[in-house]
Amino acid sequence: MRDFIIKFAQTIAQIVTAPMLILFFLSKNKEVIILDVRRWIKIVNNTNESSPIWVNLLYLLSIYSEFRNLYYYRIKQGDSIGFFLTQGFRIFYKQCPSLFIDCNNIGSGLFIQHGFSTIISAESIGENCWINQQVTIGYTTNGRPIIGNNVTISAGAKVVGKLSIDDNVKVGANAVVVKNVPNNCVVVGVPAYIVKRDGVKVKEQLI
């Protein structure tokens, strides 16, 4: 009975959210949105992986306000019509209010686990990145970060200034990154330093 009620509630929520498909069909970024949907579904509910994309899209839009932020970002990106359309939809389909996304380019598959008190202001972000809650990715007078592919930025971390985080990097919880991070590293601490490089434990300062 409980499972039936949950499923029924989810179905109603998806029906209510259905008008948001208009944005998808008008978007120039359909392919990227589809890749976003596939990654999110794989992470949050892999039992739905075989469902049609539009069903999974509605599922995510109806449940995850963080996904709505990313969705609106995709719709607006490089599209003035999309920008104006999203303004109206945002009145009825709310975003996560404490999640801010300001980035010139974000690769497909960005997963935002919790959007609480999170600022994403980078020059660019690669594919299949993962950002947790209370993260600040921000700028100084020198510029903003460039983040590579398959980067995880854990809860409470700060990545600030003109720097690059290369591919396959994990930034530990509450770390403060103010210098470049090379490929295949795990960094922790304040200021951040490398504790693992290419799968081998080390203790190295960032340069």
Rank of each mutant, 00 (worst) to 15 (best):
V188N: 00
S164H: 09
I15M: 08
K162Q: 13
I120V: 14
V177D: 05
C185E: 09
I165F: 13
I6L: 15
S65W: 06
G161M: 09
I194K: 04
S117K: 08
K203G: 03
N142K: 11
K30R: 13
K30W: 09
C103N: 07
Q77E: 08
V178E: 12
F89H: 00
G172L: 07
L57F: 03
V159K: 01
S117Y: 07
V32Y: 02
V171G: 06
F100Q: 14
I207P: 15
Y71E: 05
N183D: 13
S154F: 15
N180C: 03
V16R: 13
V151H: 05
G78A: 12
Y193N: 08
G199Q: 10
K28V: 13
I75Y: 02
G199R: 02
G126V: 05
W40S: 10
K7R: 14
F100G: 10
P19T: 15
P145M: 05
R38M: 07
T11L: 15
L26V: 15
N174A: 13
C103Y: 07
G88M: 08
C185A: 14
L70D: 12
D166V: 03
P191Q: 00
V135Y: 12
F89A: 02
A122T: 14
D198G: 06
G82C: 04
I6A: 13
V202W: 03
P19H: 09
V181H: 02
I131P: 00
L110D: 00
K7S: 14
G161T: 04
S117N: 08
I147D: 02
L85W: 04
L85E: 08
V181W: 01
K42Y: 02
I125K: 08
I75E: 05
S62A: 11
I53D: 06
P52W: 00
A173N: 03
E123C: 02
K76T: 15
G138V: 14
N149P: 05
L23D: 04
S80V: 10
Q87T: 11
I165W: 12
V202N: 05
N69K: 07
Q14A: 11
Y193V: 15
V160D: 04
V176N: 12
K203A: 04
I34R: 13
Y193A: 05
S164K: 12
L99V: 12
S117I: 12
I5H: 10
F4Q: 14
K196G: 04
L61A: 00
G189S: 03
L21Q: 09
G143E: 05
G156A: 04
M20F: 02
I15C: 10
K42D: 03
K201W: 00
I131A: 04
K203V: 14
G156I: 02
L21K: 10
